[in-house]
C-alpha cells in the first residue's frame, strides 16, 4: 500500500519546544490513504502536540509538515487542508446551548457541506443519536457527546481524520460499533486516520501501523504484531507497560 501511493500526510523531523521544554523531538512519519496509524505512548509523550501541529493549532519549532502536498503554515494552504480534514477529541466540547442537530448544522455550514440536512440526518442515524437529536448539547451523556463529536468529524467526508481518544467514554458496545464505522470508512472511502488511544486492545485491533512515542521521540514503529515481537511481549498492552516503565527508570 505505502509504496504504490503517495502519502496524504508527510511529516519530516518536526520538533516542538515550549521555552526550554522539548515536547516533540525530530519526529518523522507518513500517513497513506486507507490507512489507520496509531500514535501510542504514555501521558506527556507528545501525541497531542503532534496532532495540534498537524491541525495548525501550533507551529513546529523546526521540521516540515506537508498535507495533501500543501504547507499548513501558509494561510491559503491551511484553509484548503482543513476543508479536507477533520478532528475529534473526547476532551473538546460542542456549543452546549444548541441542540445536537443545530450544532451539526453550524459545522456543516463551516465546511460548506452540500445537502446539509440530509447529511446530518445520515450522521445522526449512523451514530445512533436520533433520540438526542433535538436536545440541547448540555443534556447529552458523555457517550452521546463523544458520538456527536465523531458525527461532527465525519460531516465533511474528510480524507484525513485525526482522532484523539475517540472512544474514551463510550460503553464497549458503542465503542465497538464506532471502531467498525472507522474501519468501514477506511475501506470504503480510503480515509486515512491518525488515532490515539490508551486502550491497547483497541489499538491492536484497529491500527495498520503504530508509532510508539516516549518523551517526544518515536522509539518504535511497525504493525501491532511487529511491535509485540520486537519487544518480546505477549500483547500490545504488555509492550506498552514494558516500554513505559523502562523509560521511567
Amino acid at each position: 500500500m505505502q509504496s504504490s501511493e503517495l502519502p496524504l500526510l508527510y511529516v519530516k523531523d518536526i520538533s516542538k519546544s515550549f521555552n526550554s521544554f522539548q515536547a516533540v523531538k525530530k519526529v518523522s512519519f507518513e500517513l497513506y490513504p486507507g490507512e489507520i496509524l496509531g500514535l501510542l505512548g504514555p501521558n506527556g509523550a507528545g501525541k497531542t502536540t503532534i496532532i495540534h501541529m498537524l491541525l495548525g493549532l501550533t507551529s513546529p519549532t523546526s521540521g516540515e509538515i506537508r498535507i495533501f502536498d500543501l504547507n499548513p503554515e501558509k494561510a491559503k494552504d491551511r484553509e484548503k487542508i482543513l476543508n479536507r480534514m477533520n478532528f475529534s477529541s473526547t476532551y473538546v466540547a460542542m456549543p452546549y446551548s444548541l441542540t445536537l442537530r443545530e450544532s451539526l448544522m453550524v459545522f456543516a455550514r463551516l465546511y460548506g457541506v452540500k445537502n446539509s440536512r440530509a447529511k446530518i440526518d445520515y450522521l445522526i442515524d449512523q451514530f445512533e443519536l436520533k433520540e438526542a437529536a433535538d436536545r440541547p448539547v448540555r443534556t447529552l451523556s458523555s457517550g452521546q457527546m463523544t458520538r456527536l463529536n465523531l458525527a461532527k468529524a465525519f460531516i465533511n467526508d474528510p480524507e484525513i481524520l485525526l482522532l484523539d481518544e475517540p472512544t474514551a467514554s463510550l460503553d464497549p458496545d458503542i465503542a465497538d460499533r464506532t471502531r467498525r464505522s472507522l474501519i468501514e470508512a477506511k475501506l470504503s472511502k480510503k480515509m486515512a486516520i491518525l488515532y490515539t488511544s490508551h486502550n491497547m486492545q483497541e489499538m491492536e485491533q484497529i491500527s495498520d501501523r503504530l508509532l510508539f512515542l516516549q518523551n517526544g521521540e518515536i522509539i518504535a514503529r511497525g504493525s501491532p504484531g511487529e511491535l509485540v515481537a520486537k519487544f518480546r511481549g505477549e500483547s500490545l498492552e504488555d509492550v506498552f507497560l514494558k516500554v513505559a516503565r523502562e523509560a521511567r527508570k
Binding site: 494561510a75 476543508n83 478532528f87 473538546v92 466540547a93 460542542m94 456549543p95 459545522f107 463551516l110
Partner: peptide
C-alpha cells in the same frame, strides 16, 4: 467568551474558518 465557556474554540479553529 460564549465560545470559551462552551469549550468549542478548538473545534472552530480546526475547521477552515479563518
Amino acid at each position: 467568551l460564549e465560545e470559551v465557556w462552551a469549550r468549542n474554540f478548538l473545534n472552530l479553529f480546526v475547521s477552515p474558518l479563518t
